[in-house]
Write a protein that binds this DNA or RNA. Structure first.
Lengths: 202, 202, 202, 202
DNA sequence: AATGAATGAGGTTTCATTCAT
DNA sequence: GATGAATGAAACCTCATTCAT
């Protein structure tokens, strides 16, 4: 007798996530190109062929890590910033959550910072997809801040978005590449201060 | 009778650069992993085996693009900023040259932004190598600015360096991925303004 | 439902032997170094990659021919000589079987005499492995014969072993190289006579 | 002004031998197939291309080692056995010289026993060439011995030749593969005794 | 749905040989 | 005669994916 659709869906979803998690760990450890599908299957405790019942292939697996993680993250951050009034504090919160997410999961950070950035096509798609959503979230906060007078009017919101995202991203990148020992989260406030007040003394 | 060492060196160096240029163009067009050594050889007008007289292999070719370009760039920027007094103007010049270099050579930009960032090992090495030199150049300007009172004292020079490099890098990245039509150089001054004055109105 | 272990093992073993046989024939025809793995795969009616599910590579394929054939041969000869009383007759039987095996399978003879003897490392390993077992079998017969008074005491069993094996081996070698037309087996008795009685008339 | 033909020839011959010696050592150390022509050139202190002024290629180099060494050896042994009366002593002398030659030059032994035996074509040619000459020399001694009553009449001279050569060859082979420490020459008399008197006590 | 044995395309690299100097 | 930089053919092996069970 078939299980109820809900249970089946949930069971299917759980196996999907088990595979995704396995892929994150394998990709982080050996790198995307050096990882073999069979490694992912082994770590997920499923047969090689089973991967293809849940994903379209290796590339889709990488893409799905990105989408899955970013979807959850964006949803959560969106919920959290909604209840904050001050756009400056919204931005601070977003940056803090960004650094917490990756600072707390080095394997994920490795995959998102390094492994995923290997093909123009992939990155282009990402930018128009989930990453685009994230950039829009940042941009929305900045534009809201501009209309409320909390951020300067005389700047391009797009450029400011790039500066914010680029700074955070670079912070994570250098943490992944060198000093995973320090706490990434502790950089949130100093970076925020730099972003809001600039390099030049007032 | 052998040619003079100078002539030989120069001839050898010219062929090396011919191959490097061919590699940049091939890698930019088809992506590093999809590019075949034979494509590079064809474009450089040499035999396949000749590549291996000048480089240790495909990976070394990629690495050498990075080193070669960055070496020339760092030398040039170092010379130019030396004759500028104001650290703020030094930073502006560096950012402008960075954006000019890549804005003027989309193939090179593609390779440096995307293709080269495919392996943890590679990036880690790069950071301690030529890229580290570049980051030190930026950091030097910022520290000089701090001691001259042109940049705030109450910030970490390292963090500021990451913000500066991250912002520029993100700018180039988004240009490579989306809107190669606009002039990258035109973003230098607005970005500089953001970096110096911050997001919040004074 | 998986097949019983026996059936699977046997099916796997059969495919292994099919590949080994294909390798013997291909190696015999074109020589080990000129043979391509794809030739072996074609003759075995499997895909190229399948070879690597059963063997570690080309070298392992060659080694495995040696081990497989010698294992079967030694087992068989050991069983047969066991039921013979006279050590002289034991030796005669061993020599006859040796010549029959290779005389009846020119491709195998070609591989064992020629193709397999291409690397010091390989031969050294072989000597300590299966070939060593075979030499020990010969030596055992000679030592038994000495203790029974059927072979002279005043000779080194090791040297005698080398003389016996060397003579047979040379016989096969010259047959492989020149006159595959004659019946190799017919040389067993004359050689045996020479070995037992020596060159000098009594 | 050109040198006299004799001097030139001799100079050319000396360089040829220098290359042959280099090849023997390189082939012995790394194996024929793993040796590169450039290694031989380096060891002989000549340019890569120069090898081809003296030899037709890699295979010819191997063949030439064989021919050169065997030519000298056969000449010498022929001269020496000529002045010996007793065919039994002639054979003993030949065996002793054979073992001395290789026992005194492990690199040469390695090449002649192992590296040279890699292709049917090569060995077939060898057998009809210089090796054939050597086998004929042995056969001549045996036939002479038969006609003088020193060797049994009721044996095939061909078969006896194979037994003699095979025994010696196997002796050298096992020395090359395992116990280069012992003195190969010391095996000459015991082997001779076995060959003449046989395995069975009189 | 799950399995895992089989597939087979595809590319980097080596190295014997050549030939312009 | 000697050089050695350049050539380019050739093949082992990997591994993402499929599909019969």
């Amino acid at each position: 007798m078939p299980q109820s659709s809900d249970v089946r869906t949930s069971s299917r979803e759980m196996k999907r996530e088990k595979i995704l998690r396995a892929a994150i760990e394998v990709f982080a450890k050996r790198g995307y190109f050096s990882s073999r599908m069979t490694d992912v299957a082994h770590r997920a405790n499923v047969a090689d062929g089973t991967l293809y019942l849940y994903f379209d292939g290796k590339e889709d697996l990488l893409q799905s890590i990105f989408d899955h993680v970013l979807t959850l993250f964006i949803e959560r951050v969106q919920d959290e910033v909604e209840v904050v009034e001050d756009p400056v504090e919204k931005l601070r919160l977003l940056i803090r959550r960004h650094l917490e997410l990756l600072g707390g999961d080095p394997a994920l950070a490795q995959v998102l910072q390094i492994e995923i950035r290997h093909s123009r096509r992939f990155l282009a798609l990402a930018t128009r997809g989930k990453l685009g959503e994230y950039l829009n979230l940042i941009r929305g906060i900045i534009e809201e801040g501009q209309s409320l007078g909390r951020f300067r009017h005389d700047i391009s919101a797009g450029l400011a978005t790039q500066m914010v995202f680029g700074s955070v991203d670079e912070l994570v990148m250098s943490w992944v590449l060198q000093d995973s020992a320090v706490e990434l989260e502790s950089k949130a406030d100093p970076l925020m201060a730099l972003l809001t007040d600039g390099l030049v003394p007032r």
